[in-house]
Design a protein around this nucleic acid. Structure first.
Length: 470
RNA sequence: GCGCCCUUCGUCUAUCGGUUAGGACACCAGAUUUUCAAUCUGGGAAGACGGGUUCGACUCCCGUAGGGCGUACCA
């Protein structure tokens, strides 16, 4: 346990695989929240010891993902691979202290031992643990950790509580591969120590590793950090979250039109709670968050709730920002804006954003306003234009043209007064009016649609529909 | 096989031995109505199972079942 007066240092340590799992995003968020809550520091380490998969592009995906989420680290990232010499030096220390040993087992021998060990229900053991080196000196070998065979290792986890492991169930893990490359379990310990990490907050898929890592800390004579293992995020069906559940990577959520602040709120609430609070600001989350309140059980991703949270933030978002996002989203879908597109977007967004769950959906709701005259009507809309409704729309156009105040309340009143004057209910001309204004695309209420389009465009669209193209 | 973790409404959660087990999303019904949505009102919905401990258990202990993770010269 770190000294209580030492300032908190947390870290998120993803491996660059080409995408950033949403679970990683939540781990980052919790580390960030805890660091902010305690006035500590939040760091990033790229675990790039797997040279095959670790590309610059894969690293960028992580950096961009964190930036998008607003969870950038407080210092430049540490690259694990670059610290390989330091890791090897730590192994030299372990070797000198008789806490590690070279192992010359061949892959075949290892496979055979694995089979026997499994059959006997025990951990694998290397014969080289207590044996002198072989004759031929330069044979390839790995360096293994020499852990205790008796007693138990206790992990005091902030989330899971006290977890006990019998040391005899723990095998002597490989520290250095036969090519001299450090392994993950060694590297994390050395890096977390060197980076001064006080709280290791990570996915609970690492809980089993923790016992063996604790042993390494002890062998090196280092103070243990506090551990907190977070449950994983599953798909709606309870299985491990994967592509087939709709999305898995942070970038996919961004592309689908979720707002980063919505993701933060949703992810924070998934596996952690503060009474009945559902929607909260970053400041509130920081004030309330504590790792010890994290739930123990894995949580399932719920698209409905995410949509609800996203809608909440969409309503609050600045319209200019939304216009930017919608523009980008439409562009991705192959629609580029006309010259007055920006102005039209800004006019329509306030009227439709309450009904949108995502940016993509918001874009769909904006489409009717972006259409160029003459607006093409879909079949259903065209069918509404009978002789009778045309005549009524014509009278309505005259009526609206005289309306001095082109605002929602005035237009609502105007539509009512027209209905009265024409001796019909709103239902008689509401649908056709909507049809000629929107062409059949989704649109807000009539007054909202008229306001969005403006006087000229609205009257123009009505007029277009009255003189059908021959 | 062995080891470790987990288990409250469909989902996310509250409860920290004594509650009519609360909230949110979703769902259902109704209201509103110019489409869809939004909005408003109301409703149904839970402690996996079996043993203990206790005056009292969702809460503590044990077992069972189910799920997850690990068991790599991946991370």
């Amino acid at each position: 346990m770190p000294a209580p007066d030492r300032p908190v240092v947390t870290r998120v340590a993803p491996s660059p695989t080409g995408s950033m799992h949403i679970g990683t995003a939540r781990v980052a968020l919790y580390n960030w929240l805890y660091a902010r809550h305690t006035g500590g520091t939040y760091l990033l380490r790229i675990e790039d010891t797997d040279r095959q998969r670790s590309t610059e592009a894969a690293v960028d995906v992580i950096l961009e993902g964190l930036a998008w989420l607003g969870l950038e680290p407080d210092a430049p990232p540490v690259f694990q691979f670059a610290r390989a010499d330091r890791h090897r030096a730590a192994v030299a220390e372990l070797l000198a202290a008789d806490s590690a040993y070279p192992c010359w087992m061949t892959v075949e021998e290892l496979a055979a031992e694995r089979d026997i060990a499994r059959a006997e229900g025990r951990a694998i053991r290397s014969p080289w643990r207590d044996r002198a080196p072989p004759e031929g000196v330069n044979l390839p070998h790995v360096i293994r950790f020499k852990g205790p065979l008796e007693g138990e290792t206790i992990v005091d986890d902030l989330v899971k509580g006290t977890v006990r492991f019998r040391n005899r169930d723990l095998d002597d893990l490989v520290l250095l591969r036969s090519d001299g490359a450090p392994t993950y379990n060694l590297a994390v310990v050395v890096d977390d120590h060197d980076m001064g990490i006080t709280h290791v907050i990570r996915g609970d898929d690492h809980l089993n590793n923790t016992a063996r890592q604790s042993l390494i800390y002890q062998a090196l004579g280092w103070e243990l950090p506090t551990f907190a293992h977070l449950p994983m995020i599953h798909g709606p069906d309870g299985a491990k979250l994967s592509k087939r559940h709709g999305a898995q990577a942070v970038g996919e959520f961004a592309e689908m039109g979720y707002l980063p602040e919505a993701m933060r709120n949703y992810l924070a609430r998934l596996g952690w709670g503060h009474g009945d609070d559902e929607l909260f600001t970053d400041a509130q989350a920081i004030a309330w968050f504590d790792v010890k309140d994290v739930v123990k059980a894995p949580a399932r991703l719920d698209w409905n709730k995410l949509a609800h949270v996203n809608n909440h933030y969409l309503r609050q978002a600045d319209d200019n920002r939304l216009a930017d996002l919608v523009t980008a989203s439409l562009k991705k879908a192959g629609t580029s804006l006309a010259e007055n597109g920006r102005a039209r977007l800004l006019a329509v967004i306030p009227h439709v954003k309450e009904g949108a769950k995502t940016i993509v959906e918001l874009g769909e709701l904006c489409r009717f306003a972006l259409a160029e005259r003459p607006v093409t009507l879909d079949a259903k809309s065209a069918a509404l234009l009978t002789e009778e409704t045309r005549a009524r729309l014509s009278r309505l156009a005259e009526h609206l043209a005289m309306e001095p105040d082109w605002s929602p309340p005035a237009l609502t009143a105007s539509l009512r007064s027209f209905a009265a004057a024409d001796g019909v209910g709103l239902g008689k001309f509401g649908a056709p009016l909507r049809a000629v204004l929107s062409g059949g695309l989704p649109a807000p209420d009539l007054a909202g649609a008229l306001t969005t389009l403006g006087r000229d465009e609205s009257l123009g669209r009505i007029k277009d529909a009255l003189s059908p193209a021959e």
